[in-house]
Every structure is written in structure tokens, then in C-alpha cells.
């Protein structure tokens, strides 16, 4: 493990993403990626009494699905690194309280999945054999915490995004047949002064571009090196903005760039405005779709950049702008 350039880490013995699992809610199941997920739910409560309990159950079941699929016993898992959007990360800690695995709770807003994958990779390169990383989000609990009660009859502006209900989990192992995590580029906090909480894509796009540019400079790679460059949840508007910003720096990413928030919903028929968002957006689309593409060698080199908006409802009420963050992870086979 060594640091190259300004902020990129290169692994000497690249850790493997050996298995992934994902569970999504009913709206995501109606979307174009339905067949790639391990399990789809019929209703958002999943037999629980509150949204928060349902979200905990989703992350719990996702982790146990992952353990079941991988064939690794719980005792061989050295650590689980998880996070979510709810206050004090209660979905992860309540969902995993019976897992009997050492637990690290992390928060990076919607960038949490790649953040936990980065920490997992560092742990695996250091001491661990198997580390699980997982994140979850739930449309209803997120609306309740960040916006309005569900039954309030308000209109969503066209820039608004739809929080993905679901959870994605990945098992990072020391040995395996790949795909391998070769580089990680943790991002800096970038704040371009956007204050509108309904315009997250625009708030996070500068952070995404900053991390992507730094990654290219540090590794000496260019966009054509990757089969796919994937952002976490910039949505339709953030995607267009990012293409523009990268173009102004002399990089054309239009041909191989996509966004998980754009992929998970069908904009025309599902009325999700600017696309999906939330911790689970990047986690489920990577675990469901991209991991299988890598396994089948349909794509060989991807750069996954999860983006996050580091704000809460108090900071927006106090008139603060929305700082963005983006972490990149390069996965190759």
C-alpha cells in the first residue's frame, strides 16, 4: 500500500471484492435494473412498525444474504463497516447489533458505500481476511428526517431526487479471483455555495469532478482507460453538469460515464424527476449491476465515485450551503 500523487492510495496486493448482495424496495423493483437485485420487497414496511425499523431489517437481511452467498462463516469476518443517512447511523447499528462481528459505523452521506469500501480495502491490505461493507437508505425514513411527512400534499421541484429504498453490501477479501480494488482516491470537501436542498446533484458535481481530476492526475490515467466511470447519485442534472465541468478541463467523459441515480429509475415512467439518491443508490447499483458485469467480464475496469452532500436539516435551516464530497475506487479484473 503506498500513496501516489496528491491523495491516491495504490494497493500492492489488491484486495478482492469477492461477493455482493442487494435488497431493494418496490419502486426500485419497477425500475430497469430489477432483475439484477437479490431480493425485492413488496412493501416499504416489510412487516415492521416504522420506517426506521424496516430500514434496519433491510440492512440486516442484506448482510446475512451476503454471508450466505459467499460461504464465509460469520467467525471469519473480521469487521463490518456500515453507515446510513439516519441520525447517529441507527439503521446500521440497530440492524447489525445481533451480527456478533466487530462493527465500525461510518458516515459520508450518500458517499458512505465507497468510503466503507475504501476503509475495508485498507484493513484487508493491513490485517484482515474478510471485511463486509454495507450501507442502506429508505425513501420514507429519509423524507421524514430531511423533508416533510409523507402524507403532506406538496409538489416536488424538477431538480429533486428520489431516495433509493434498499441496501447493498460487499465482501472484501484478501484472496480471491477478483475483481480487485487497485486504487482508492478519497476526496476533499468541495463547497460551491449551492444552498437549495432540492438541488443535490448540482451541489455534489464539483466534488465529483475534483476527485475525478485528482485521480487522473495522481495515476496518470485518462478517461479512456476505464470501461465505465460511475458516479453515485448525481442524477440527471448533476450528470450533465459534471460532463460540462470535465470538458472545460479537457477531459471528454461523455461516452463511458454513467450515474447510478440515472440508471436505477426510468425517468419517463417513474416520475423520479432528477433520478435516485441516498446511500443505497450507489450500493445497490454497484452490488446488483456493476459487480455482475465485472464477474462476467462484460466490463473490466471501472471507476466508482460515490458522491455525498454533507448537510442536515438544521444546517439548511440556518442558511448554510451544502458541502459536497466524492470518493473514488478503481476496480479492475
Amino acid at each position: 500500500m503506498q500513496k501516489i500523487g496528491k491523495q491516491t492510495i495504490k494497493f500492492d496486493a489488491p484486495p478482492t471484492v469477492s461477493e455482493c448482495a442487494s435488497i431493494v424496495g418496490p419502486k426500485e423493483a419497477d425500475g430497469p435494473l430489477c432483475k439484477y437485485f437479490d431480493q425485492t420487497l413488496e412493501d416499504e414496511f416489510w412487516g415492521e412498525k416504522s420506517w426506521e425499523k424496516a430500514e434496519s431489517k433491510i440492512i440486516k437481511e442484506t448482510v446475512s444474504t451476503l454471508i450466505g452467498k459467499s460461504g464465509v462463516s460469520t467467525a471469519d469476518v473480521d469487521m463490518v463497516i456500515a453507515g446510513d443517512l439516519l441520525n447517529q447511523c441507527i439503521s446500521s447499528s440497530f440492524g447489525l447489533r445481533d451480527s456478533n462481528i466487530p462493527f465500525l459505523g461510518v458516515f459520508g452521506a450518500c458517499s458512505t458505500f465507497v468510503e466503507s469500501m475504501s476503509i475495508s480495502a485498507i484493513c484487508v491490505e493491513g490485517f484482515a481476511k474478510n471485511v463486509i461493507c454495507a450501507t442502506s437508505s429508505h425513501f420514507c425514513s429519509a423524507e421524514k428526517q430531511f423533508r416533510f411527512p409523507l402524507e403532506l400534499g406538496n409538489q416536488r421541484p424538477p431538480t429533486a431526487q428520489w431516495t433509493v429504498t434498499g441496501s447493498g453490501a460487499a465482501l472484501i477479501s484478501k484472496s480471491g479471483n477478483g475483481p480487485f480494488i487497485t486504487h482508492i482516491t478519497p476526496g476533499k470537501i468541495v463547497d460551491m455555495g449551492i444552498k437549495d436542498a432540492n438541488s443535490m446533484g448540482a451541489a455534489m458535481a464539483p466534488a465529483f469532478c475534483d476527485t475525478l481530476l485528482t485521480h487522473f492526475q495522481d495515476t496518470g490515467r485518462n478517461p479512456s482507460y476505464y470501461d465505465a466511470i460511475i458516479s453515485g447519485d448525481l442524477g440527471h442534472i448533476g450528470k450533465e453538469i459534471s460532463i460540462d465541468i470535465m470538458k472545460s478541463h479537457g477531459y471528454n467523459i461523455k461516452s463511458n460515464y454513467n450515474d447510478c441515480g440515472v440508471m436505477i429509475f426510468d425517468k419517463a415512467s417513474q416520475d423520479t424527476h432528477s433520478g435516485g439518491s441516498g446511500c443505497a443508490c450507489c450500493a445497490t447499483v454497484f452490488s446488483g449491476y456493476w459487480f455482475k458485469q465485472l464477474q462476467n467480464k462484460k466490463v473490466k475496469k471501472i471507476l466508482l465515485i460515490a458522491t455525498g452532500a454533507l448537510m442536515n436539516s438544521t444546517s439548511s435551516q440556518q442558511g448554510e450551503s451544502i458541502p459536497g464530497i466524492a470518493h473514488a475506487i478503481s476496480i479492475e479484473i
Binding site: 431538480t159 460551491m192 449551492i194 464539483p206 453538469i241 465541468i245
Partner: peptide, 18 residues
Amino acid sequence: DPTQTKQGYQDYVDKKSP
């Protein structure tokens, strides 16, 4: 580059948003 100044970026985003 639209991200050179905060004001410039805000104006650019307003133009870009539907």
C-alpha cells in the same frame, strides 16, 4: 470552467436546471 467562482456556478446551475 463553471466552478471558478461561487456566483458563476450558481448562475450556471440555475441555467442548467429545468
